[in-house]
Design a protein around this nucleic acid. Structure first.
Lengths: 321, 321
DNA sequence: CTGAAAGCGCTTACAG
DNA sequence: CTGAAAGCGCTTACAG
């Protein structure tokens, strides 16, 4: 494999000049530029990117940390990040963690070793205090108490409250909620909103009506059967993700339970499946979040100070409430 | 940032020894090992991975080339690759191409520059002949005439034929098919199987009954309306992907068309949504394919010769045929 | 078990 | 516009 020195020799110039040509620097005479170009062609030169990285001290790559890509929410987030990254010519490295703290720490160690220039945490299991021990450009796709990191997020408390008020306005008082997992900032804020809303309408808070570990269509089906068995039934369930809502709705239909008459379903995401099934949901612009997350991390890598962005949401009325 | 030289000085040993300690080589005395370890701790040493890559000539990372991550088929494939890669401690780089040949070429150029040690093409737009101009470890998740590359694939012709025979056995003769895109090896073989099956039962081949550009749930909905408008209607549609089948089925139900009585639907994938909707489909082990693809590429990178694997498939009878 | 030294291949401040 | 030289930080064959 020819290297920059071979090219220099062949073209009769210095390696500096070759480097200038490769990087499109000005101040190279046409004559030398052409000779270099010709030599590169003749020797089938390909730049060794590792040497560039070592020399420049950066990798032109950022890491995406997420539990699994195999879930529409995260897939959409990645797609948004990928689009923006491609425009900037930045590479993407994937860290699938399955909410395993050790794997998140692995990703952080990769940042430290410069494998990547920055990290986007799409969702995390690691505690804020632990995360704070790490340095480098890290962006969180969720609200956080750590002001050291830029964040982009949905105002989950507000949005959830908005959804709850919508259900209440539609006459519901017995409302259950279903989250992906109780841990995590997003759920924290959602539960808070839930409690507040219940208090205002004089309903008691039932621990059992806060369900979790629901992510897939099958989880939604299971949710239906849980609901079916309850003595006292909520008239509405506010579900934090479209996949689960879809499973819930499909299973309800299969068992001739009328939606929304016997059971109302309000969802979050507005991904394709909710549209296909006519599920009333709250659009949270997942892809847009990915795009902006990338832009913010990029700025952070370039040394700008932390931003905190909050995205908008909106209710999409369809037929399940 | 402390480097290996700083550690060597502080510990009073050579850089060679430090390197040995870092890489867990044998033949280092306990005493020196401890001194090095202590020095590393004291100076908060982090290895610069770029130097390692430059020195070793590899990146410990492979690239995944696919049109979009935001589609269950590809997301599942990635998940499989990611699981296997994590076990081997290999990083994953994502190249989202949107079937843009230029972006595929970009990925290939990254392989050449050693940004990645190998490439998995989950699906491609670039022509075989063009691809052949590139060197390095490249694995294709599809059948190919190029014997220079290892491949892993489903026997699409056979599997499609199997599905068609199943439809025929169920009494269908007017069968349409719907593919993701007509270009590409997979479709090539499927259309071939389709023509053969039609010929055997004495049906004519209708160009218009081979539909394409169908990937999403919405595409499936559109497909229904196409079907609805046809004068002469097929009694069954064989759809190459679960998302499209789901859209087709949902829209059929919404318009009170009885499935399978008025319209039978046979699908391919066996992803969660087909299970949720009770769609009869052909399981093609997407995730397993990802796992094995990684293992094969890894072997190829290590210098072993090309393998060609063919995965099994099986029909999952549910309620749409 | 240990180390001096060559090698991986590029970038860039500096001097001209 | 141009080049010599230092620097990025590691690995590894070789000699001992």
């Amino acid at each position: 494999m020819a290297n920059i020195k071979d090219i220099a020799e062949k073209a009769g110039v210095s390696v500096t000049t070759v480097s200038r040509v490769i990087n499109n620097h000005p101040y190279v005479s046409e004559d030398k530029r052409n000779r270099v170009l010709k030599a590169m062609e003749a020797l089938e030169y390909t730049r060794n990117i590792h040497a560039v990285h070592l020399s420049k001290g950066c990798s032109n790559m950022i890491g995406i940390v997420l539990p699994t890509v195999n879930l529409p929410y995260f897939a959409e987030l990645i797609a948004g990040i990928a689009d923006a990254a491609a425009e900037s010519g930045i590479h993407l490295s994937l860290f699938q963690t399955n909410y395993d703290v050790q794997k998140e720490i692995f990703a952080l160690s990769q940042l430290k070793q410069r494998q990547v220039d920055g990290l986007i945490f799409c969702s995390k299991a690691i505690a804020d205090e632990k995360l704070m021990e790490w340095e480098g450009p890290i962006l969180l796709c969720q609200n956080s108490d750590i002001s050291r990191f830029p964040t982009i997020s949905i105002p989950h408390q507000e949005a959830f409250r908005y959804g709850l008020d919508y259900l209440i306005a539609k006459g519901h008082k017995k409302i259950a909620i279903c989250l992906a997992r109780k841990k995590g900032m997003n759920s924290h804020f959602r539960i808070k909103a839930y409690k507040e809303a219940l208090e205002e309408i004089g309903e008691v808070f039932r621990e059992g009506w806060v369900m979790e570990k629901a992510i897939t269509i099958n989880d939604g089906k299971a949710l239906f059967h849980k609901w079916k068995k309850w003595e006292e039934k909520p008239t509405a369930i506010f579900v934090a993700n479209d996949q689960v809502s879809a499973g819930l709705l499909l299973e309800a239909r299969a068992h001739k339970v009328k939606v929304p008459k016997e059971l109302a379903i309000l969802s979050v995401d507005n991904h394709e499946i909710s549209q296909a099934l006519g599920i009333t949901t709250i659009d949270i612009q997942t892809k847009e979040m990915g795009k902006q997350a990338f832009a913010m991390l990029k700025k952070r890598i370039q040394g700008q100070s932390n931003e905190r962005k909050v995205l908008d949401y909106r209710l999409i009325e369809r037929s399940t409430v």
